[in-house]
């Protein structure tokens, strides 16, 4: 029994190792394919040949490609993710600086998406093929098919330009920028610590629209999955048994069917949370939101190789971790997989 689980653990560790290695190869290839001369990017166009040689030697640009890869991995293992050519700062510092804005946005989005998506999915499953189900399915289909950057703009036109209900681009109005000390990077928390309610409400006002539009895309996914999980359960015999023995419909749905899909739901919500990164790239551009998504696109547009490689690596690691987490959740909470 014990050796079996050790073998399983070993296999799992091997898989993770191979996947991470493949990820490194991928980011390295992307970095090397970029039409940017890493040496020129550091020394500028005017530098002479001697300086060029010296810098090339120092950063290893003239080494054979496999040695460059070895250097890259070695640097990463020593926690050196390279220096951003644009800001001159270590890339990892830049990323840590922009991350809170994205986490704030994504967290509100997932609260919206899961808080509304799970009940809607259950409702659709219970009311299967009735008008409510059709309406919910139509809404999720639209959420699935819409270009999110476009929805963001339409939202800005309606709720900001015409109705003037929410704040426009950015995390707060211009005249509030820098008023609250940057303690955690999470603006809502920082303004609470500073006790500045004006900034807090302004920040909430700016967060509402981008977060709900970003959340709508995850709502579509979560609703769809909840509906199909619920239908799987409702079609099973134990539900009929529960109903036959006189349990109320409400009790059957919540205490039996819903109890059985909770693990799957946690998994789905975790994956949807990571998936928000994709929408964030577009939504942050629309709303001038100074987060990770905007950082990644800006660096791609100017071709800052070190920053792009590290961002792609980070996204890959986040997703590998999320997938592992969801596997682990299954194993922990689902007795059948033990």
């Amino acid at each position: 029994m014990k050796s079996e689980s050790i073998t399983a653990f070993g296999r799992q560790a091997g898989t993770i190792f191979v996947t991470l290695f493949g990820l490194l190869v991928l980011t390295f290839c992307i970095g090397r394919m970029m039409p940017v001369d890493p040496v020129r990017a550091i020394i500028g166009e005017e530098a002479d040949q001697a300086t060029y040689q010296m810098v090339a030697e120092r950063i290893g640009a003239n080494l054979p490609i496999y040695q460059q890869f070895f250097r890259y991995v070695n640097d990463l293992l020593h926690g050196d993710f390279g220096t951003s050519i644009r800001t001159g700062q270590p890339v990892i510092n830049d990323i840590l600086h922009v991350m809170p804005a994205t986490i704030e946005l994504a967290t509100f989005a997932i609260l919206f998406g899961a808080g509304l998506g799970v009940p809607l999915g259950i409702l659709a499953a219970v009311q299967r093929n009735k008008p409510v189900d059709h309406i919910i399915r139509f809404l999720t289909l639209i959420g699935h098919s819409m270009p999110i950057f476009w929805t963001g703009m339409i939202g800005l036109i309606i709720f900001y330009a015409v109705l003037d209900l929410v704040g426009g681009g950015g995390r707060v109005s211009d005249f509030y920028i820098g008023l609250v000390p940057d303690t955690t990077g999470f603006l809502l928390i920082d303004s609470l610590i500073a006790g500045d309610w004006e900034v807090f409400w302004d920040a909430v006002n700016h967060l509402l629209l981008p977060a709900s539009i970003l959340g709508y895309s995850s709502l579509a996914y979560i609703t769809r999955m909840t509906r199909s999980f619920m239908l799987d359960q409702l079609n099973q015999e134990y539900i009929t048994t529960a109903r036959v023995k006189g349990l109320s419909k409400r009790r059957t749905i919540w205490h039996h069917a819903f109890a059985n899909i909770r693990v799957q739901l946690v998994t789905i919500v975790a994956l949807a949370y990571g998936g928000l990164l994709e929408g964030a790239v577009l939504i942050e551009t629309v709303f001038s939101w100074p987060g990770f998504g905007q950082y990644i696109t800006n660096n791609m547009l100017i071709g800052d190789m070190n920053a792009v490689m590290t961002c792609v690596l980070l996204v890959g690691i986040i997703f590998i971790a999320l997938n592992l987490l969801s596997d682990a959740l299954y194993k922990i909470f689902d007795p059948r997989t033990r």
């Binding site: 996947t19 493949g22 992307i30 990571g274 790239v281 990644i296 791609m300 792609v312 996204v315």
Partner: peptide, 24 residues
């Protein structure tokens, strides 16, 4: 394994990275 590495990315971010590498 190769398929999994590609699948572990959201498609827009991976496409972005490739376009950044190949040129817009």
């Amino acid at each position: 394994r190769i398929t999994d590495i590609f699948l572990s990315f959201p498609s827009l971010i991976l496409s972005l990275a490739f376009v950044a590498a190949l040129g817009a």
